[in-house]
């Protein structure tokens, strides 16, 4: 497996997130489903049963990058992803491909340097590392405070390929 993908999957799992196979994506889209306008989600657009992420049980979105060092999904706000599509649904399913993996945050900033100039940058860059969490009460971990309780990442590739 791609070593960056391996690190990403391992570290995402340590944050409480999960990785699912593309073949299992269908079974994840239950209840009120919001599907974002991201091109990668187009094949599932027909599964949408809800237009407002505030009311969704599951939100399916794309992403702009992933960070292997921290198991992080990076999403830019804009016409395809809103600031809410990744936040309000109890389950957030993210679609991405191996080519979007970066080793660390620095590399993400370098990759998108053109889009991060003043006046040109997306209004919000969201670095999402696992589900929403708190340890405020006696350091006990509780998932799903204001953001999703479940974060599921799905690679477009099956991961068995070399490289």
């Amino acid at each position: 497996m791609n070593p960056l993908r391996q690190q990403f999957e391992q570290r995402l799992a340590q944050t409480g997130g999960t990785v699912a196979a593309l073949a299992d994506l269908d079974s994840l889209l239950t209840g009120r489903v919001f599907v974002s306008a991201h091109p990668v989600c187009r094949s599932w657009a027909a599964r949408a049963t809800c237009q407002d992420p505030r009311e969704a049980d599951v939100a399916l979105t794309g992403c702009d990058a992933m960070i292997a060092e921290t198991g992080t999904v990076v999403v830019f706000s804009g016409p395809v992803e809103s600031r809410l599509s990744t936040l309000t649904a109890p389950t957030h399913v993210v679609l991405g491909s191996e080519a979007q993996l970066s080793p660390d945050m620095e590399t993400v900033f370098e990759r998108f340097a053109d889009r991060l100039r003043p006046g040109a940058s997306p209004a919000s860059l969201m670095f999402i590392t696992g589900p929403s969490r708190t340890t405020d009460i006696e350091k006990t971990l509780v998932l799903g405070v204001h953001g999703p309780k479940k974060l599921v990442f799905v690679f477009m590739e099956d991961g068995s390929g070399a490289g």
């Binding site: 570290r11 060092e69 921290t70 209004a123 860059l125 969201m126 590392t129």
Partner: peptide, 16 residues
């Protein structure tokens, strides 16, 4: 001890 805080957000401005 976390590698990164769950939500790290760069806010560049109001709604476009």
């Amino acid at each position: 001890g976390m590698r990164l805080t769950a939500y790290t957000t760069l806010i560049n401005g109001p709604r476009k």
